[in-house]
Design a protein around this nucleic acid. Structure first.
Lengths: 207, 207
DNA sequence: ATTTTTACCATACAAATGTATGGTATTTTG
DNA sequence: CAAAATACCATACATTTGTATGGTAAAAAT
């Protein structure tokens, strides 16, 4: 696994990307250390060395905030779309995933995550619309308020995830729909993954 | 002329903007000094103080590369047009519509496309929301119904582009806002680029 | 079972960075 | 014309920043 990234390293990479897009200054070692509660910068330095060795970042030595993201080089990368979701309907998986999308590299796509195309307007209350591509990470433990893709009795849904009193609730953004409460006895229930991003290609879409 | 900027100060401001968009790191005092041939950083410091006093930049004290540009909406305006625009509030609202958007954060600038982080909800009718990142390509010829980023006087807007009878119209998704008609005589109008995509990171955003 | 990797700690240090102070000469403003 | 602003200089100083070195404990790989 020369390219394998550890969870902590991924968190640090996320932080760097976040800083860069949001505050749009790459962070200093000290800022990263503070954010993660490290008592010194040396720890961060070692993580950055690991990330550099694995090709995720490039560092300009002796340059403050000199962290470059190597995933910058390519702005768009083709990615396969695995299937489609529409609330109420089964999750359709394309057998050969013929459909692909040019995904911008700013969109975080961790190793095992996959793409689904949204059909219909059932998610419009979550600001996700027909034709949008959602990025789903199956290896994240869903936390409250996360959007998750879940399978309920053969039907795939995209809803907000909440835990309460040992049972799981799936909330819709539209208050007219009552939350679905998953009791322990529930048979066919499975959280497929957490929605970590949404991408919409606009250029051709003249609506 | 408390807001008047000297030629040298303008050059330094240009350099900061350039650095920020091109190498996308704000420069340090030393880098600015080197570029202009100053023998010390104190000279640069005084220029930055002047620029700050005049409201062009904001500095985070004791933060390396902590130069913030307050005139953000000018980042992506071609310089020649910029020069004629009076400095002032970065977000002047166009009289005919509230439908302007604050686009302060250029996150990345690869060969052609760049990113803007959307602030505010004025684009919600176009399904673009606060915090979303829009991908803008300045090298595409806008066609009818394309979303474009345009600068009108001092205001940056994201609207649908239409051509009719030789004049250009900018339509809002919200029908309550009347289209802005750009006549040939219009002074400060410039299409910055075409919006080719929208990306939203969701995982951490508990909204 | 041993080695390697991971994930932290502490301390030290040179260079970079922002700032402060004081000075000179020129240009602009009142 | 006098006063203020501009545009540089030099030197000094406390932090910040990146890096280096050495160490510990646990997990993962061989």
């Amino acid at each position: 696994m020369s390219k394998g990234i550890t969870k902590i390293q991924e968190k640090i990479l996320d932080f760097i990307i976040d800083k860069r897009i949001g505050a749009w200054l790459p962070p200093t070692l000290a800022e990263i250390a503070k954010h993660f509660g490290y008592r010194n910068r040396a720890t961060v330095q070692q993580h950055l060395q690991a990330l550099e060795k694995k090709g995720y970042i490039k560092r300009n030595p002796k340059l403050s905030r000199g962290i470059e993201l190597t995933i910058n080089d390519k702005f768009f990368v083709p990615r396969p779309i695995l299937g489609e979701v529409a609330a109420g309907n089964p999750l359709t998986i394309y057998p050969d995933s013929i459909d692909t999308v040019e995904l911008p590299t700013i969109a975080r796509m961790p190793k095992d995550s996959f793409l689904l195309k949204v059909k219909g307007d059932s998610l419009k209350d979550a600001y996700i619309f027909n034709g949008d591509i959602i990025i789903v990470n199956p290896n994240i433990e869903p936390k409250d308020a996360h959007f998750v893709v879940a399978v309920l009795d053969d039907a795939a849904v995209v809803k907000r995830f909440y835990r309460s009193n040992g049972s799981i609730e799936l909330h819709s953004e539209n208050p007219e729909y009552k939350p679905i409460v998953i009791k322990k006895t529930y048979g066919n229930f499975n959280v497929v993954g957490v929605v970590i991003g949404v991408y919409r290609s606009m250029e051709r879409k003249a609506v």
